[in-house]
Amino acid sequence: MILVFGQSGQVARELGRLIPDATFLDRAACDLSVPTDCIDAILYNRPRAVINAAAYTAVDKAESEEELATVINGHAPAAMARTCDELRIPLVHISTDYVFDGSGTDPRSPDAATAPANAYGRSKLVGEEGIRASGCAHAIMRTSWVFSSHGNNFVKTMLRLSDTRDMLNVVSDQIGGPTPARDIAYAAMAMAEALMVDPTRTGTYHFSGAPDVSWADFAREIFRQAGRNVTINDIPTSNFPTPAKRPLNSRMDCDSLRNFTLRRPDWKAALTTVLEELDVIE
């Protein structure tokens, strides 16, 4: 049995489709703001592997709730990892490109220096460091720009806005790889299964959709596939201030995915599937 922390988030929902016989823990079953609950859950369920698909994801709100975000994104995963090490089982943890400062234009490798520019990124980095320090077999999977037919994400926001507007201003100087939640779920399962057989595959991996694109061009593709006549005006990040600083460069070097016979997913093809699920296209 695989134990999954999370149930209603985008990746957890896709894991539910992929491995319905796994045990899923929502906030009522395990509150990550109480890290000892994570320990108790793992010891009680005695799984073969753990996937952490739960997190504090309110990026802007984290600026005023960094302590809480750090407990959920940092201390809780560290507690999971220590317990996994005790039971000699692997942990797959989903992290983020926000652990980098977003400078430059080159894709960041998994071993590149980290320097989070906001509270959310700092909280996720605490989790990564705690997992590595635990000594457990693990795969830390950094991803970016997650989308699906579930929850809140850029695709659904664009569609909602286009219901009442035919012109939108969208940031064009942030570049990254939109990543389908379904593919993240598949990669997480593949990593968990591989680590159960070969724990030497432990490490940090990057997983993002291809090709890299701006938010503005991502929006254009959404409306092209949805058949909606919406004009996108490119704007710089400086014209769209937010409480949390966003990275301009979210490009990630995903070459190490070969260790799991994985490759970057085609986000345009996945977008078609998501729009079909949302009944936007037939």
Rank of each mutant, 00 (worst) to 15 (best):
M1V: 15
L3A: 14
F5D: 07
S8E: 05
S8R: 00
Q10G: 14
V11C: 14
A12C: 00
D21W: 03
A22M: 00
T23Q: 09
T23S: 14
L32R: 03
P35S: 12
D37E: 06
I39P: 11
D40E: 15
D40W: 02
P47V: 02
N52E: 06
A58T: 07
K61P: 00
A62R: 08
E63A: 02
S64A: 14
E65R: 05
E65A: 12
E67V: 01
L68P: 07
T70S: 15
G74N: 13
H75Q: 15
A76L: 01
M80R: 03
M80L: 13
A81R: 11
E86I: 08
E86F: 14
L87H: 07
L91G: 13
L91Q: 04
T96L: 12
Y98K: 06
Y98L: 03
P107H: 09
S109W: 01
A115N: 14
A119N: 13
R122D: 10
S123K: 00
L125C: 03
V126A: 09
E129I: 10
G130M: 12
R132I: 06
A133K: 15
G135Y: 01
C136L: 00
H138S: 15
W145F: 14
V146T: 13
S149W: 13
K156S: 07
N169P: 02
V170G: 07
T179M: 03
Y186C: 03
M189H: 08
A192R: 08
A192E: 02
E193Q: 15
V197N: 03
R201S: 03
G209C: 04
I222N: 11
V230W: 12
N233R: 14
P243T: 04
P243D: 11
K245N: 10
S250W: 07
R251L: 14
R251M: 11
D255F: 07
L262N: 00
A270N: 13
A270M: 06
A270R: 03
T272Y: 08
L275R: 02
L275P: 03
E276K: 14
E277S: 09
